[in-house]
Structures are given as structure tokens and as C-alpha cells.
């Protein structure tokens, strides 16, 4: 099952100001793309535009040759994980995951997901008692819950130390092997392997 994501001369706005323009690339399935750029160069807006959070943009985004601007139903194939973990602070890890499971109405069993992200031990702890790294890993569990093909991760490695980012690495690996695509952004060079790179500064409008 191979997917294609084609973006041609995409222009994003922040308010009235254009952040970047003429950004084009096409990504095949089983590929990971790193989005490099300084802070404020539009990495997050780029990811959010693909994920469908922002619908004011010029240019076209094609997923398997259908334009996302018109085929809104395809957006459920995209999963965006931002820096803001949308977790319910006063609930426990297990409760949060249960609630997400209902949003995505996914059939996957939770234990398997917990192993992948090594958060099995934190199940009954309240979110506000976790460290940022642990919170990020819990927030990443949404990727495994939702059966979306394209993963869009905004600065996923920020709070993850060495061995935890390996966890993320092999999650992305078997996601891509299953025909998935992953795009993740970072403002420093990372040890997470990637197939090609988009430098935001090439397209930035200052």
C-alpha cells in the first residue's frame, strides 16, 4: 500500500504576512523527512497546514493525487503531534489514553502501545506528576492509537534523551515499513535517520 504526498509551491501565512513561499516536494511512502529551520521559520505552520489545522494557504497539497483542500475526508489520514501535549492534566495516563482511544475509535490494545513507548510503568500516575519527557511519550502514544498514514511531528525530540529517541526511531521505522510517511521538524541536527530534508530557510520570506 504505497502513499504519495505531493506539495507544490505552497505559501503559508501568519496573519497577513507570508512566512514562506514556493515550497515544493514530493514524498513517497516509507520515507522520513526532516524539516530543518530556525525558530519562527514556519516549520510548525507547514506541518499544521498539511494536517489541516490551517486552511488559509496558497498552492496545493495532494495526497494520493487528491487535493486536500477539497477532499476534507482524507484528513483523517494525517496525525499531527504538536509541542503542546493535549493531555488532561488531572487524569492519569491510562485514563488519557482511554479517552483518546474513544476519539479515534481504534481497536488496538493499549498494552502493546505502552510497550512501544515504555510508559507501562506510569499507567496510574497523574499527568501533572510526570516529567516533560514522559508527557511527550504519552502524547506520542496517539500516533499508535490512530491508524493515520502520515505522521507530522513538531519538535518530537526536544525532551527525549538518547535511548528514548531510539524508541521513537523504531516506531517510525515500522510505521514507514507499513507504507506510512513521517515528517518531523527540529531546529538542531538530530540522530534520527531521515531520507531527505527540507530546509525552511530556502523558502522563507523575510
Amino acid at each position: 500500500m504505497s502513499n504519495k504526498l505531493i506539495i507544490n509551491d505552497l505559501e503559508c501565512f501568519r496573519g497577513e504576512k507570508i512566512i514562506f513561499k514556493r515550497l515544493s516536494c514530493n514524498i513517497e511512502s516509507n520515507q522520513t523527512v526532516l524539516i530543518r529551520g530556525t525558530n519562527g521559520s514556519g516549520k510548525t505552520s507547514f506541518l499544521r497546514t498539511i494536517a489541516g489545522y490551517i486552511n488559509k494557504y496558497n498552492g496545493t497539497i495532494l495526497f494520493n493525487d487528491n487535493d486536500l483542500h477539497h477532499e476534507k475526508s482524507l484528513l483523517s489520514n494525517f496525525q499531527f503531534i504538536g509541542q503542546k501535549n493535549s493531555l488532561k492534566e488531572n487524569l492519569t495516563v491510562l485514563q488519557n489514553i482511554e479517552i483518546w482511544k474513544l476519539i479515534y475509535s481504534s481497536k488496538k490494545n493499549i498494552n502493546e502501545i505502552l510497550e512501544h513507548l515504555d510508559i507501562g510503568s506510569l499507567l496510574n500516575k497523574d499527568i501533572n506528576s510526570l516529567s516533560d519527557g514522559q508527557k511527550k511519550r504519552v502524547s506520542l502514544s496517539r500516533l499508535l492509537l490512530s491508524n493515520s498514514m502520515v505522521w507530522l511531528l513538531d519538535e518530537p525530540l526536544v525532551f527525549l534523551d538518547e535511548d528514548k529517541s531510539n524508541l521513537l526511531a523504531n516506531i517510525i521505522l515500522n510505521h514507514n515499513n507499513g507504507g506510512g510517511i513521517t515528517l518531523y521538524s527540529s531546529n538542531t541536527d538530530t540522530n534520527l535517520q531521515y531520507d531527505n530534508i527540507i530546509k525552511m530557510d530556502d523558502y522563507a520570506v523575510l
Partner: peptide, 16 residues
Amino acid sequence: NSDYEDGNLDTIILTQ
């Protein structure tokens, strides 16, 4: 409000 503030509302809406 609580879903709106922590971004869950957008996620729910985006599940089409």
C-alpha cells in the same frame, strides 16, 4: 473550553 484549550477539540474536529 477544556478541550479547546488543550487542542483536543481540533483533533476531534479533524477526525471528520
